[in-house]
Design a protein around this nucleic acid. Structure first.
Lengths: 221, 221
DNA sequence: CGACACTTTGACGCACTTCAAAGGGGGTGG
DNA sequence: CCACCCCCTTTGAAGTGCGTCAAAGTGTCG
């Protein structure tokens, strides 16, 4: 485990207290699993009886429509939790974007812990609340122009990956396109355009430098 | 209060049990308030310290971008709860679409009840989970074609309002357009087109008959 | 009955998609 | 270590679905 990952894992772990912390609980009680790139972590319509936490690597959740179109629900990086959905079955599937290490815990275990421990219950609620907020932001992105969507996506990723101004995207253009409701060509063209207007620089196709955050924010309305 | 509303209110009220029910709690402890059409229930950036339940009428939540574009986050009809957002402040505002009667309860009251009563905590979690699922469906709508969005919207509303096959929409074309990320002209044209293809009938502009649910579902992919 | 707001319809323009082909860039085998 | 290959990305050209601008139709409330 690299130092960077250790830091990231600790940032949600509170020092010591009477009540248990969901993150700590997972570290103590959770099972560790590894998934190879593009491997499915869980499938659409499978039982949603596990909660996951990303230790390293990146994960995407997605849903495929009957005509083959794919929509990506979200991306999850080290420290993020995923897998909680409302009903008994998943309505999205989850796949590893890169090689991924996760911790997983049974939902029922977490639920019974939450029943006895108030702080666990509160954290669970906060977690779902955060996921709701993320999804609402996703909605806001999807009604904007291509430039605004791509700019918003870059800013979101820069925040999440905690990169200063240089983001190393773990996902392909196709993943980005399916997240933003655009085609790969439009994503590519938009990135080129942002580079030409000096808002970003493309080191490689996946490594992007945010040259002018202000300009990106302005595009994000 | 009409019989229809009485039935709708009861469908989430469990008979009698040891633990308190959030819906019952609101009926017992909640404060009743009335809002006129287009009146603001709460504003963006206001403290999110109240939880609401629609008794009658319809509510929309919305966010306005700096350039004036408005995005509607969701519609809420009798029986629906709204107002829970992740942070301390609302990121959406809520307005009455029609005259609206709501019950409201302090979030802190609900939280302290949840701390003592397991079922309240579970219901709170389920409520946020349902809101998350709704928002995810919203995301799925926004990446589709205009026809699919409008068809999906009609099916969603028919479900929510519990109308057999004739839906009385409480919201304007502008509200629909801002929910679906389209213009009023496109919404109007699409409805006309759906009528011409015998999928729906427009009794009046707000009263729509679903003539062919299969066709609408097919459009919904 | 007339005024006003909302909805529908029409004509045109543009942003994004589609179809097509030409770059890279990373990994493997020789 | 180089060369080749495959896949991902970029770029180009043409098509189209939705937006924009404009005006007519419709329902409602004073």
């Amino acid at each position: 485990m690299t130092p960077v990952q250790t830091i990231r894992e600790n940032h949600t772990a509170y020092p010591s207290r009477d009540h248990a912390d969901a993150t700590d609980l997972m570290a103590q009680m959770g099972v560790r699993m590894t998934f190879a790139k593009d491997e499915e972590i869980y499938g659409q319509d499978e039982d949603a009886d596990l909660i996951y936490r990303v230790v390293s690597g990146s994960v995407r959740t997605s849903r495929v429509l009957s005509d083959g179109r794919r929509q990506i629900g979200g991306f999850y990086v080290a420290g993020d939790m995923f897998g909680f959905e409302n009903g008994a079955a998943h309505t999205f599937s989850a796949e590893a974007i890169t090689q991924v290490k996760v911790l997983l815990i049974k939902r029922s275990v977490l639920a019974s812990l939450a029943a006895r421990d108030r702080t666990v219950a509160e954290q669970l609620l906060a977690l779902v609340g955060r996921e709701l907020a993320r999804t609402q932001e996703h909605v806001m992105l999807l009604v904007k122009t291509a430039q605004e969507r791509v700019a918003g996506f870059l800013l979101e990723m820069a925040d999440r990956i905690q990169a200063h101004d240089e983001v190393d995207l773990p996902m392909s253009r196709q993943d980005i396109a399916d997240y933003l409701g655009l085609t790969i060509e439009t994503v590519s063209r938009t990135l080129t355009h942002l580079e030409n207007s000096a808002a970003i620089a493309l080191r490689t196709s996946r490594r992007i430098v945010l040259r002018n955050r202000g300009a990106l924010h302005r595009l994000n309305s």
